[in-house]
Simulated assay, not measured.
Amino acid sequence: MRGDLRQALEADNLFARKSLGQHFLLDLNLTAKIARLAGIQPGDTILEVGPGPGGLTHALLASPAARVIAVEKDPRFVAHLRSFFADEADRLIVREADALALDEVTLLAELGIKQPVRLISNLPYNVGTPLLVKWLKAGSWRGPMCLMFQTEVAERICARPGSPHYGRLAVLAAARCDARLALHVPRLAFVPPPKVESAIVVLEDHGKPFEDLPGLEHVTAHAFGQRRKMLRASLKGLGDAEALLADAGIDPTARPETISPEGFFALARAWRARA
C-alpha cells in the first residue's frame, strides 16, 4: 500500500540538491491539474524527465496513460521512485540517466515502444532550455510536450514578434510547434521554494515543420546575438548579409524582434542555399 509522499521523503532524509536545480512539486492537486493540461489519452506513453520524489509522477500514474518512463539523474530518487511506486511496477519504468545525454530512440526501441511519446516534466531550471531545443529537433518518436520552466523562459518560448520576450527560442519553438503558456505556478508551491516563478508551457506539433533546425539555430544566434542592431549589421558573420536578406525578402534595416518566425525560416533557407 502506497504511503504519504512527504512522509516517505522525511523518513528517508531525501532533500533537494541545489547543484541539480531540484525544487520539488508535492502538491498533488496541482500536479493533477498539470496532468489534465497535458491531455493524456488512454494508451499513451509518457516520458518524464527529472521526476525527483515523484509528485508529478503520482499524477501521471493516476491518468489513463499505459506507461510512464521516468528518467532521473539522482540515484537517491531512482531507488525512491521504484520503492514508493512499487504497486505500479507494471506501468512505471525508472531509468537512471542524464536527460541531456539520453538517446531516446534507443531507449524506446529497447522498451518496444513504437508510438510517439508525450513529454511531461517539471524540468530542472538549469537544463530546461537545452532539453527543449533537443526535443524540438527530435524525430517521430516525440509527441506533444507539457513542460514546466521558470516563467521568464516560458514567456520567451511563447513570445510573438514585437514582444520584449521574443527571440531565438520562440523562433525555434515555432518551427515545429504551437506553444501556449497554460498555467502559472507560484514559487511557494515548491519545496524548497525557488527564487523565481514558474509556468507550464504546452507545445503541440502544428504539422508544418521547418526541418532545418540547425540552420535556424545558426541564423538566429547571429540575429539575436546583437538584437539592437539592424539585421544587415548583425548578420555580417553569415557572409553577404545584404544578399541573404534580399533572398529572404527581408528589409535589411529591420531589427530581429520585428521579424516573424516565417521570415527567419526564409532566411535560414537562404543561408543554407549559399553555405
Results as ranks from 00 to 15, higher is better:
Arg228Asp: 09
Arg274Cys: 06
Val49Pro: 04
Ile93Pro: 00
Gly52Leu: 08
Ala199Asn: 07
Gly249Leu: 01
Gly207Tyr: 05
Ala179Thr: 05
Gly167Met: 02
Arg118Thr: 06
Val68Ser: 12
Lys33Asn: 13
Arg228Trp: 01
Pro144Ser: 14
Ile93Trp: 03
Arg255Met: 09
Glu197Gly: 12
Ile46Phe: 02
Asp4Thr: 05
Glu155Phe: 00
Leu131Gly: 12
Asp98Gln: 11
Phe84Ala: 06
Gly52Pro: 10
Pro64Val: 03
Thr151Arg: 15
Phe265Val: 03
Lys73Leu: 15
Gly139Tyr: 06
Gly39Pro: 03
Ile200Glu: 06
Val68Cys: 08
Gln7Trp: 01
Asp247Asn: 10
Phe24Trp: 12
Leu169Asn: 07
Lys236Gln: 15
Ala175Cys: 03
Ala221Glu: 14
Leu100Glu: 13
Ile113Trp: 03
Asp90Ala: 14
Ala99Gln: 10
Gln41Pro: 00
Ala97Pro: 02
Pro116Gln: 13
Tyr166Arg: 13
Arg17Ala: 14
Asp27Phe: 01
Arg228Gly: 05
Leu203Gln: 05
Ala138Ser: 13
Lys73Ile: 14
Gly239His: 11
Gly55Ala: 11
Pro51Trp: 09
Ser140Ala: 15
Cys158Leu: 01
Glu152Leu: 00
Ala99Asn: 11
Ala89Thr: 07
Gly55Gln: 10
Phe84Lys: 08
Pro256His: 09
His206Cys: 06
Ile46His: 11
Ile259Arg: 11
Arg91Val: 02
Pro116Phe: 05
Ala65Cys: 12
Leu108Thr: 10
Ala59Pro: 02
Gly54Glu: 13
Pro53Arg: 12
Pro124Asn: 13
Asp4Gly: 11
Leu169Glu: 09
Leu100Gln: 13
His184Cys: 02
Glu96Pro: 01
Val153Asp: 09
Val94Tyr: 04
Glu88Val: 00
Leu26Ala: 09
Asp247Tyr: 01
Phe224Arg: 13
Leu100Phe: 01
Arg17Gln: 15
Gly162Asn: 05
Arg272Val: 02
Ala248Arg: 01
Ser121Phe: 01
Phe84Ile: 04
Leu26Phe: 04
His165Tyr: 10
Leu92Trp: 01
Arg232Phe: 00
Val68Asn: 11
Thr129Asp: 09
Arg274Trp: 03
Leu108Glu: 11
Gly50Ile: 07
Leu111Glu: 14
Ala254Asn: 07
Cys177Leu: 05
Cys146His: 01
Leu119Ile: 10
Gly143Glu: 11
Val185Asp: 02
Leu147His: 03
Lys73Pro: 02
Leu183Cys: 06
Cys158Asn: 05
